[in-house]
């Protein structure tokens, strides 16, 4: 039996990878992929805690998170396509409409 803390550590590290990707990558598609990585890190904790607490509610939450992640990826990629069509780039350094 692997202690549940190990899963927390693994999940934190994967989440930090995703956060670093969101902050340091300038490609909008890479940012979306990093967000998927972060959601996935949260799912690891859900399943590990579900096993640890002898319940299945965590696994059901994972199914909902996967649903939301799929919707988010689809809408995000549609927005990426719309932005590319409008501005000809997906580099976040050139997409500064809200920066003032």
């Amino acid at each position: 039996m692997i202690p549940v803390e190990n899963y927390f550590v693994l999940s934190s590290l994967v989440f930090l990878c995703g956060l670093a990707g969101v902050m340091f990558r300038r490609n909008l598609i890479m940012v979306l992929m990093s967000i998927e990585l972060m959601l996935n890190a949260v799912n690891i904790i859900f399943v590990a805690a579900s096993r640890h607490l002898a319940q299945v509610d965590g696994q059901i939450m994972v199914l909902f998170v996967i649903t939301v992640a799929a919707c988010e990826a689809a809408v995000g990629l549609a927005m990426v396509i719309a932005l590319f069509r409008r501005y000809g780039t997906v580099n976040t350094e050139f997409l500064r409409l809200l920066r003032g």
Binding site: R25, R26, I29, E36, A69, A70, V80, I81, E93
Partner: peptide, 27 residues
């Protein structure tokens, strides 16, 4: 869902947009 649908969507959009690799100064 993830490997079969979402990542395929990502690869599809990368293919449509014909992206070049990032310049390294991006980091």
């Amino acid at each position: 869902v993830y490997a079969g649908a979402i990542v395929v969507l990502f690869v599809f959009v990368i293919m449509i947009l014909n992206l070049k690799p990032d310049a390294l100064r991006g980091i």
